[in-house]
Amino acid sequence: MFGGIPARNGVNAALPIHLGATGVDDVFSGSDNFLMAFGPEANPAGLIEGLGKRFEITQTNIKKWTVGSPIQAPLDALQAIQQKHPFRLDELAKVVVRIATSEAKTVNDRNMQDISLQQMVAVMLVDKTVSFRAAHDKARVEEPDIVRERAKIELVPDERLERLYPQLVAVVEVTLHSGATYTQRIDAVRGTVQNPMTREEVVAKCRDLMDPFLGGAQSKGLVDAVLNLDAVSNLGLLRPLLQRRK
């Protein structure tokens, strides 16, 4: 959805030109320009502010987990606890997740797996990660291991965290049958500008999405080509790497 619509708009913009249509050289100039139509109160000087020095693409957030945004921080927190304090599932008594009240409404026990906090936290408990496939596997909703761990999860809407919104903050507390309790707070979600992923993590995310459709070898070739785009003499060479082979 997110990638398809901009691509469609680009094609739709190019087709009239291909068919001979004409247009203005600069949509931001003239009496009936883009800004007058869409932002009459805008400051035109902002278009060139920091030009050549500030690059907005470097302010891009990348989702580490293929789940609803309010679930990102809880998964970060739970994974951190699992790594710092490894525990067996039969040792686990309860998991309490605190997020902003408005976020909780969005992800509380939803039917869609990838925006159900309880389902995704249960997957993280069982798999120690959340892959794209696991996040969208409807059958796993009824998987015995998932059902058992899901029953241990409590979602708490937190007004204090609501006051921090739109910053996505989560506090996860894991309690074991032994009485041991581990707490992790996440203030900057992994993949955001404040806590960016490493190149290796970004590649791993891409491979998780592409490998099932393109195959491991082709996905690796595409990643290598994109990471060395300045050395690609003809962008048409990327097309075979983007096409799923029969």
Score class of each variant (00 low, 15 high):
T58H: 12
L47Q: 04
F87A: 06
D76N: 14
L47V: 01
Q83L: 08
E103S: 13
R88M: 14
I71Y: 01
F38C: 01
E49R: 13
Q83W: 02
S69W: 00
F38K: 01
T58G: 08
V67E: 00
W65T: 06
P86L: 03
A104D: 08
N61T: 14
A100T: 02
I62W: 08
N43A: 09
R54K: 15
V107R: 00
A93C: 01
Q59S: 14
N61K: 11
A77F: 10
N43P: 01
L47G: 01
Q59V: 03
F38T: 05
Q59G: 11
I57K: 06
H85K: 06
K64M: 13
K94T: 11
Q72M: 12
N61Y: 10
F55L: 11
I57R: 07
F87E: 10
P74E: 12
K64I: 05
R88E: 15
V95W: 00
F87C: 06
L75P: 02
R98E: 14
V107P: 01
R54E: 14
E91T: 12
V67F: 01
A104F: 05
T101Y: 04
P44W: 01
L35M: 11
N33P: 04
L89A: 06
W65R: 13
Q59N: 15
L78H: 05
L75E: 04
T101S: 13
V95S: 04
K53M: 06
K64Q: 15
A100R: 00
V95Y: 00
H85T: 05
E56P: 06
A73N: 12
V107S: 04
G68N: 06
P74T: 12
N43F: 00
G52Y: 07
N61R: 08
K64W: 12
N43D: 15
H85I: 00
P44Y: 03
V97C: 07
F38R: 02
A42F: 10
F38W: 02
K53Y: 04
V95M: 05
N33E: 03
T66N: 11
S102F: 00
I62S: 14
K53E: 10
A37Y: 00
V96H: 13
A73K: 10
K63M: 09
